[in-house]
């Protein structure tokens, strides 16, 4: 078990996972940040939050996505960012599963609003895709070795012997 956990391949797999996941989250938030009203409508369509919380969720969630995505790409507190991503994926999965269970026929709203994403209907494939991203986030949270990134650089500076 330890040999698997300590295998050097995790450094590079973790880095690839970090960049991919970070890219996905940054890409996903752009339209939501630019068009908060449309994203609020998407949130409302899932019919899971009380009306008073819909706009608050629509205003905050994309920024958490952006921050987590950038932190993953830059390698700054990446495990925390991955945990935040995993938390968001759990929330999205619950919302998707609930919408599918209730038979809502709607666009996912994951990357763009309903109005421009007519070809992105929710389905069990969407659940599968999000589950994959959840696993990826969990992998980064558990296996990140700080390969390339700000964390690595900070660690290097901390460990560098002081010179006269």
């Amino acid at each position: 078990m330890n040999r698997f956990i300590n295998h050097p391949v995790h450094s590079w797999l973790g880095l690839a996972a970090r960049w991919y996941l970070g890219g996905v989250f940054v890409f996903a938030c752009l339209h939501k940040i630019a068009h908060p009203a449309e994203f609020a409508l998407d949130v409302a369509t899932y019919d899971m939050l009380p009306l008073s919380l819909v706009n608050l969720a629509a205003l905050t969630l994309p920024w958490v996505e952006l921050a987590a995505g950038l932190m993953l790409i830059l390698g700054w507190r990446a495990r925390g960012a991955a945990l935040a991503c995993a938390g968001m994926m759990v929330v999205f999965l619950v919302a998707l599963a609930s919408a599918l269970h209730r038979g809502l026929d709607m666009s996912c709203g994951c990357f763009a609003s309903q109005s421009v994403a007519e070809d992105d209907p929710i389905s069990y494939l969407t659940v599968l895709r999000d589950s994959g991203w959840l696993l990826l986030a969990a992998y980064v949270a558990l296996f990140d070795r700080r390969a390339l990134g700000i964390d690595r650089w900070l660690e290097y500076r901390r460990r560098r012997p002081a010179t006269a």
Binding site: T60, W63, V64, L66, A67, A68, M71, R77, R79, G80, A81, A82, L83, A84, G87, A141
Partner: peptide, 12 residues
């Protein structure tokens, strides 16, 4: 990491 995630969420 969990603490970082909470701080990230609150600040963002």
């Amino acid at each position: 990491a969990l603490r970082d995630a909470v701080v990230l969420t609150l600040v963002a």
